[in-house]
């Protein structure tokens, strides 16, 4: 009896292993053939590219080195561009978070909103989240002209959807007792949200807000490259002109500011939600 069971278990186990092995082999095959295919489609090959990998960084670093002390003068020159990128990200995150708050309140099951609008608002957020920022930015640049505003609107649109989903998850996990207490005092829906919901969700909202801000700084820098202004536009110009030292300075500025924001936002988030809840 035990032997029969052991045999059956053994058979199941080996079949499972076979499946795992097969799927891993399949994955490996996809990766290998994918890289082969990608290498074929690429204008430069893999091996020769690998050899050239350090050429460009070395070239811009050496040009920066040749500039000597003048290199450091580039930083104050590009500071306005960096501030513009940070402004795009900050405005987009603030406006996005405001819309996300409204959308999330309208799509949480525990806040006594009409049940019919919940799935509708969720689909709207899904669409906003999935819509590529690049398309909105390019369209608005065409209509409004090259300026930071198209990028800010594009990033804010995406942010509303992305934060809205996270915020609604936070809303659904709150303690409803304060809401009931407020209801007993005869307060209206807005007052219940203001005094029952917001104080509970604010720490988590802030944490997600900061995380999003960091992501949006990267997104705004990239959108600058297609004409939205800020450090991306400077970078595209510097690379186009082959100005190595300027490129190096811009790379360094972007890198340092992203790392600084990353560290600062981790620190603040730990402070808001407490180290034990920190994810």
């Amino acid at each position: 009896m035990v032997d029969v069971m052991r045999n059956q278990l053994g058979a199941l186990e080996s079949r499972r292993r076979l499946y795992t092995g097969l799927s891993l082999a399949l994955l490996l095959a996809v990766v290998v053939s994918g890289y082969h295919e990608a290498s074929q489609l690429n204008s430069g090959g893999f091996l020769q590219g690998l050899l050239k990998f350090f050429d460009y960084p070395a070239q811009i670093v050496s040009q920066a080195w040749d500039d000597g002390w003048e290199f450091w003068a580039l930083f104050p020159r590009f500071l306005p561009a960096l501030i513009e990128t940070l402004n795009i990200a900050a405005v987009a995150t603030i406006i996005g978070a405001l819309f996300a708050t409204i959308l999330s309140l309208a799509s949480s099951r525990n806040l006594e909103v009409p049940p019919v609008i919940i799935p509708a608002v969720r689909r709207v957020m899904d669409i906003m989240r999935a819509f590529p920022e690049l398309i909105i930015a390019l369209f608005l640049i065409f209509v409004l002209g090259a300026s930071p505003v198209p990028a800010a609107i594009a990033v804010a649109f995406h942010t509303s959807g992305a934060l809205g989903k996270l915020f609604s998850e936070v809303n659904e996990n709150i303690d409803v007792k304060p809401l009931e207490g407020l209801k007993a005092t005869g307060s209206n829906w807005l007052q219940r949200v203001r005094f029952g919901v917001i104080p509970q969700v604010l720490p988590n909202y802030s944490s997600y807000f900061l995380l999003r801000f960091e992501i949006n700084v990267r997104a705004s820098a990239i959108l600058g490259f297609v004409g939205a202004g800020g450090i991306g536009t400077e970078l595209s110009r510097a690379i186009g002109w082959g100005a190595g030292a300027e490129t190096a300075a811009l790379f360094l500025m972007l890198f340092l500011s992203i790392v600084a924001i990353d560290q600062l936002s981790s620190y603040l988030r730990r402070h808001f939600v407490g180290a034990e809840n920190f994810k």
Partner: peptide, 28 residues
């Protein structure tokens, strides 16, 4: 981890475009 993340996709792709040329390998 912090370093490769901080460099950001923008800078990585600009460096890789120089080394590998245009195409999906660069993006990957």
């Amino acid at each position: 981890f912090d370093f490769v993340r901080g460099i950001d996709m923008l800078i990585w792709s600009l460096i890789f475009i120089r080394a590998f040329g245009l195409g999906p390998l660069t993006g990957s």
